[in-house]
Design a protein around this nucleic acid. Structure first.
Length: 920
RNA sequence: GCCGGUGUGGCGGAAUUGGUAGACGCGACGGACUCAAAAUCCGUUUCUGGCAACAGAGUGUGGGUUCGAUUCCCUCCACCGGCACCA
């Protein structure tokens, strides 16, 4: 055993042991319970960042804990290797995306291995390899044949200068990131997966995922956005009718205009006839397609000159074009009900359109009903007494009209009334509530053939086409004679050429006149391949399944049903909607293809928070901001330890302190995990990652905190070493503890023989086992588990009993600490466990069990409150009767002082917790 | 704009089912060791008043429920994540 803690040697030795013994390679074993612990796979961006370290450290702690509990644990790793950054790097450095990506993978694999994760590396793969994506192409072809794939036109961001499609991320303030040109919307043909066919199941199954965070389920529910409403047809004078969808048919009589999308055929027609309208439609093309951009832009419109006929009143309503109506959503047209819709109200107010109230609030209805009752009492006392007055048939009642007019005036001047209420100004439907009006209006429109009930989803089909090179080729062939032909399965994969030269912004696939040339599988004539590639969400939607079946001829084989579903999935909250919805959708596709037999891919989900750090900056003379890395800065404090400033170490001059933000290149506040591992060791980095915050919260990286963790591990090493040294020197005989389960002469076997101090330490050991076990298994609260282990360690270090029993207790305490800490800091625990005299490796040792006898308490401490305010504590026997507890509490001098001045009204006793004396 | 989340000492955080607010760590301060420094060890550390005993205040804001609220309900504010082509 070494005197001082040499983390580099300890970590290298442990990693060599795990590697040589293939400790974490697993196979299916029906005799043991399985546990599939999955962390989201990384994009190989070049270097590991702290977000990865956090994610994988959480997953590793969970995996190693489960392993010690006896589970057959699968923890795999792969590379989400297709994506935009590789193309950007290719343009910048003039290297092929493949070469860049593979080099990054090599480097990052080494970084992951240095962190000591218990990963089964034999299952590793990169998603950019043909033997991975061939399965994705085959699935696409099968889905095409099933009718779950289709092609349609959809809007993209178009950079008119670079002549290329831009990702939303590449549109900054409405301009292309490279060219600076104002981005336009452009419609191009694209491939879609019919996720909406699964919308209902994706929604319903959320209720059967108790292990997923409520917040994620709520976000997914809202994203799917199931709504029941009516499709209503508005006839247009001299033109084809326009169909709108509404969830508020009860407000139909309040419709005073119709708004259509700029891309709507009717809008196109209007634009052709009127240059002013053409200019407006043209203006609507400016800017990108991101929803956040569309929803925050100023609502604008123009009148088309067309008129719609209200389906029930026959009234002529003006047809407007609105920039907030989107062709891709619903029918591309909405009815304008300004009195009862926020957005329509704004639009009507801006363009001076009619606002007609057709719903009144319950408060107004009740007030009018009250007036009506008064009138009725005179006219027909009997009916009034029976409550038969029809509230809205009594508008003649004095004051009723005034109430209505006042309500309408408030709507017109202050804003729409969007709650449910009672119908007015709606002909035969007056007096009905929302539900009644919905049904009655639906019935009438259906009878007259002017509308139908419809369930609508906010969820749109998944557009999978990308006009990029570095992705999986879409296996489709276009033939002049046969049209669209999927590539036959036996001709797959369609291989993406990796040895390409990147010139400018265009995809090498599209630039190469040869690659696309092929023969039509149907007629044998000359044809062309699709040059678009898949959205990279495709690869990350089924990788979890591939891990279970390395080398399988199909996507997966029978092994998938041993491992799936994933027992614990861990990843960033930023994936709450898109990735996790596609992941669930794809699993259902696998199930319906007969490849797996469960309904959901993951039973438990943990979303970890971001890793953040302080930012520091200096403003240049020209107003530009230089962001300075926290590692280069020194903090200044006042006498109360408050931060008052910061200086650059290099020049000693002050820098400004910015907000604490997510680690990023742009704010230069990233901390390189590699630097931390080199300086402090993997165990210290892992320990800090789990200690500084609970997994779901954001984690603030702070190097002083890291040093604290290193200090703790050094102390642990030293104390265990001293304990082992004193034991070996013969001061005491080498006893084994109850914790490791290997002894019959443990202190636990004669509890009555223990001194109060010994009893107290032994209780703390076993209380810690209970608490830490719960923190691991139920709460994933590694921060509090570590805190409890630190407390136990501090108590053990202070415990200076040199008797044989004392030494045995120390052994018991250190064994507990090492076992309980092993999933978090596996390297040091691997070495210390050996030092404590064990031959089996700690990662394979059973998780410790608490001894119930050690937990037993004779007395309890109760807090004594007077009127809810703490005044002292009393110590009573654990089984003391209520009367005695009350007597002790009232006898407490601090309490008696208050009870003396007033009378005791009540004494609340919560057994084992508090006594609250209520004094009046 | 819409959806979801968060807010507690100087800082990160704890308080698990409505029951002693501030565990654990960092920082700061005082002390020991040292020629000195680093490292290490011991102690103090929510704020206000007080020599002290002690008293009062306190979990983003304002209100409510309760014997008792960081925890439950309502209002407002600030910040963070997502918004379908970043991954």
């Amino acid at each position: 055993m070494q005197d001082t803690y040499d983390f580099a040697a300890v970590e290298a030795a442990a990693q060599r042991f795990w590697n040589d013994s293939r400790a974490f390679e697993v196979t299916e074993d029906p005799s043991r319970p399985k546990y599939y612990c999955l962390s989201m796979l990384p994009y190989p961006s070049g270097a590991l960042h702290m977000g990865h370290v956090r994610n994988y450290t959480i997953g590793d702690a969970i995996s190693r804990h489960r392993r010690m509990l006896g589970y057959n644990v699968l923890q795999p790793m792969a590379w989400d290797a297709f994506g935009l950054p590789a193309e950007n790097a290719a343009i910048k450095n003039n290297t092929a995306p493949a070469k860049w990506t593979y080099a990054n993978i090599e480097h990052m694999r080494g970084q992951l291995k240095a962190l000591g994760y218990a990963i089964d590396w034999s299952r590793e793969f990169a998603t950019c390899r043909p033997d991975y994506y061939v399965h994705e192409q085959r699935m696409f072809v099968r889905l095409y044949k099933k009718g779950l794939v289709y092609r349609k036109h959809a809007l993209v961001n178009w950079d008119p200068v670079d002549q290329t499609v831009l990702a939303n991320e590449q549109v900054i303030d409405g301009r292309g990131w490279r060219s600076g040109a104002i981005v336009e919307k452009r419609e191009i043909p694209q491939w879609f997966l019919r996720i909406t066919a699964y919308a209902d199941e994706l929604l319903r199954e959320l209720d059967r995922l108790p292990g997923w965070p409520e917040s994620v389920k709520t976000m997914q529910r809202n994203w799917i956005g199931r709504s029941e409403g009516l499709e209503i047809e508005f006839a247009i004078e001299n033109e084809a009718p326009v169909t709108v969808f509404t969830t508020r048919p009860d407000t139909l009589f309040g419709a005073t205009f119709v708004t259509i999308a700029p891309e709507h055929p009717l809008a196109q027609k209007a634009a052709a006839a009127d240059p002013r309208i053409r200019a407006f439609v043209e203006e609507c093309r400016r800017g990108g397609v991101a929803e956040a951009e569309l929803e925050t832009q100023e609502k604008k419109g123009i009148e088309t000159g067309f008129h719609a006929i209200h389906p029930l009143t026959g009234e002529r309503l003006p047809v407007w074009i609105g920039n907030f109506v989107l062709m891709g959503y619903g029918t591309g047209a909405v009815m304008g009900v300004p009195a009862h819709d926020e957005r329509d109200w704004e639009f009507a107010t801006k363009y001076d359109l009619l606002i007609r109230m057709v719903i009144v609030s319950d408060a107004v209805r009740d007030a009018i009903a009250e007036l009506g009752r008064e009138v009725a009492t005179h006219a027909d006392p009997m009916a009034a007494a029976l409550g038969e007055s029809q509230p809205l048939d009594v508008l003649e009642a004095p004051g009723a009209l005034a109430l209505l007019e006042e309500f309408e005036r408030r709507i017109v001047t202050e804003g729409a009334f969007t709650d449910y209420g009672t119908l007015v100004n709606s002909g035969e439907f007056d007096g009905l509530d929302y539900r009644g009006a919905f049904d009655a209006i639906a019935a009438r429109l259906e009878r007259e053939g002017k509308g139908r009930r419809r369930v609508n989803y906010r969820l749109r089909d998944w557009g999978v086409s990308r006009q990029r090179y570095w992705g999986c080729p879409i296996p489709i062939i276009y033939c002049a004679r046969c049209g669209v032909v999927p590539v036959p399965e036996e001709q797959l994969p369609v291989v993406l050429p990796e040895d390409v030269r990147f010139m400018g912004v265009q995809s090498p696939l599209k630039a190469d006149p040869e690659w696309r040339k092929c023969t039509c599988p149907q007629c044998g004539g000359a044809a062309e391949r699709e040059t678009d590639t898949f959205d990279t969400f495709m690869e990350s939607s089924w990788y979890y399944a591939r891990y279970t079946s390395p080398g399988a001829a199909d996507m997966v084989d029978a092994r998938a049903n041993y491992w799936l579903p994933v027992d614990q999935y861990i990843g960033g909250i930023e994936h709450a909607i898109l990735h996790l919805l596609y992941f669930r959708f794809y699993h259902k596709l696998l199930r319906d293809a007969g490849l797996v037999n469960c309904d959901e891919p993951a039973t438990n989900l943990l979303c970890q928070g971001m890793v953040v750090a302080e930012t520091f900056y200096r403003e240049n003379a020209d107003g530009a901001i230089d962001w300075i890395n926290p590692a280069e800065v020194e903090i200044e404090r006042d006498e109360r330890a408050r931060v008052i400033g910061a200086r650059l170490k290099a020049d000693g001059r002050p820098v400004s302190i910015g907000p604490t933000e997510k680690m990023s290149k742009s704010k230069n506040n990233g901390v390189d995990p590699q630097v931390m591992v080199d300086k402090y060791g993997a165990d210290t980095v892992r320990l800090f990652s789990l200690f500084a915050a609970p997994p779901e919260q954001s984690l603030e990286w702070n190097e002083a905190g890291v040093e604290g963790m290193a200090r703790f591990l050094r102390r642990l090493w030293r104390e265990v070493q001293q304990h082992v040294g004193s034991r070996e020197s013969g001061t005491v005989s080498g006893e084994r503890s109850a914790v490791s389960g290997e002894s019959s002469t443990a202190p636990g076997s004669q509890p009555s023989a223990l001194s109060p101090q010994q009893k107290s330490l032994r209780r703390q050991i076993h209380e810690t086992i209970v608490k830490v076990s719960d923190d691991y298994a139920r709460r994933y609260a590694f921060n509090t588990a570590i805190a409890a282990l630190m407390e136990l360690f501090n108590a053990t270090a202070r415990f200076d009993d040199t008797s044989a029993t004392g030494c045995a207790l120390r052994q018991e305490a250190f064994e507990a600490i090492v076992l309980l800490l092993a999933p978090i800091t596996p390297h040091i625990c691997h070495a210390l466990w050996r030092a404590l005299g064990h031959d089996d490796p700690v990662h394979a040792h059973p998780w410790p069990q608490a001894d119930a006898a050690a937990l037993r308490k004779d007395t309890v401490t109760l807090a004594v409150q007077v009127n809810g305010k703490l005044r002292g504590t009393v110590e009573v026997a654990a089984d003391a009767p209520r009367e005695q507890v009350e007597k002790c509490a009232l006898a407490l001098p601090e309490a008696a002082r208050y009870t003396a001045v007033g009378t005791v009204k009540k004494v609340v006793i919560v057994p084992g917790k508090i006594v609250n004396i209520v004094v009046g």
